[in-house]
């Protein structure tokens, strides 16, 4: 009890201090943001001052966001002692770490595993989710709200809560240490997510178009395949991409359900990448591996950034 009280006390104190400091930062700054709308007309001293504050904050946000990745790239190109001297600008462009990582058969197979698992999971989830989300978004039936809620709840499951049961299931099916164990277990979060997001997208399609198709003689399946799917493909790409990222990044199930090096997925491979001895962590190759698995994701995210934002919001805010 005393523990609890002291715990709460210190945390509240931390929190109050922290809130106070941030408020002091945020609100003057907010003022600047609001006045920034007509910055062009403002030539006063305070206008210029807030303008500078605004750009400093922007620069800080960008710097903090990209520096760790920049530093990983930088480190991945350094070897030997050079790696262990902190530096802020590129000192060398040595691909040795990349060679080291890519010539490791287990790492290459982990990339293949990850691609395979994530792709199959996402395709399967989308396939099941498209028809299900049509039913959830477009057909009125009793218990629909409860069903949607259950699906949302499943997507928020703590994965650890199903781990022992899944472990039993995976062993019973005889798929332990195979990609199928991961595909099966990843469905627990990709399927509810895709159903939920696609349902919100599907609800936004105009009712009258569906009714016109019904009058034209379209069955529910024809409505989905001939009318809705062509309109929904951007949503499908977004949802699929988000689900892919989720599956690509998953760690706990991959750690639990694989045992041999060649069966691992990328996150597990990177987490368990170790050197000759326990003490020597091979930072260079780890950074190279990190860059290799991250660059495609960053590229995808940047290409589809508008759609991703729409997908995230559909999954979150709209509720």
């Amino acid at each position: 009890m005393i523990d609890l009280l002291t715990f709460l006390f210190w945390n509240l104190l931390y929190f109050a201090a922290f809130v106070g400091i941030t408020l002091a930062v945020v609100f003057p700054f907010y003022y600047a943001v609001l006045s920034s709308a007509d910055r062009s007309g403002e030539r006063t001293a305070s206008g210029v001052f807030w303008n500078i504050v605004f750009w400093i904050v922007v620069a800080l946000i960008v710097l903090i966001a990209i520096f760790p990745f920049y530093y990983a790239v930088l480190s991945s190109l350094e070897t030997g002692t050079q790696l262990f001297i902190p530096n802020y600008l590129p000192q060398s462009l040595n691909p040795a770490n990349y060679e080291a990582v890519l010539t490791r058969p287990s790492f290459v197979s982990s990339i293949v595993n990850s691609v395979f698992v994530a792709t199959v999971t996402v395709v399967a989830a989308l396939f099941l989710a498209v028809t299900a989300s049509y039913a959830l978004a477009r057909v009125r039936f009793r218990g629909r709200g409860l069903l949607l809620l259950t699906i949302l709840a499943v997507s928020m499951f703590p994965q650890i809560a199903v781990l022992s049961g899944l472990f039993e299931l995976v062993n019973w099916l005889g798929i332990y240490n195979t990609p199928w164990a991961l595909i099966l277990s990843y469905t627990i979060f990709t399927l509810p997510f895709t159903v939920w997001v696609l349902t919100t997208f599907m609800r936004d399609l105009p009712v009258e178009i569906e009714e016109a198709a019904i009058v034209d003689g379209a069955s529910p399946w024809v409505v989905i395949s001939k009318v809705f799917l062509p309109l929904l493909w951007p949503a499908l790409v977004t949802t699929g991409l988000l689900a892919f990222i989720g599956a690509w990044n998953e760690f706990l199930f991959a750690l639990t359900f694989t045992i041999t090096e060649t069966r691992r997925t990328v996150p597990v491979a990177i987490a368990l990448l170790s050197g000759a001895s326990q003490q020597e962590i091979p930072w260079g190759p780890i950074m190279a591996a990190s860059v290799i698995v991250t660059v495609p994701l960053i590229a995808l995210v940047l290409i589809f950034q508008r759609k991703i934002v729409a997908g995230l919001t559909a999954g979150g805010v709209k509720g």
């Binding site: 105009p206 178009i209 009714e211 198709a213 009058v215 003689g217």
Partner: peptide
């Protein structure tokens, strides 16, 4: 009887054309 079997055609307020 389902709509398409009733021999009806419908013109909607929002036109409801298939956009694609």
């Amino acid at each position: 009887v389902i709509p398409s079997k009733r021999g009806i055609a419908m013109v909607f307020q929002s036109y409801a054309l298939y956009p694609h």
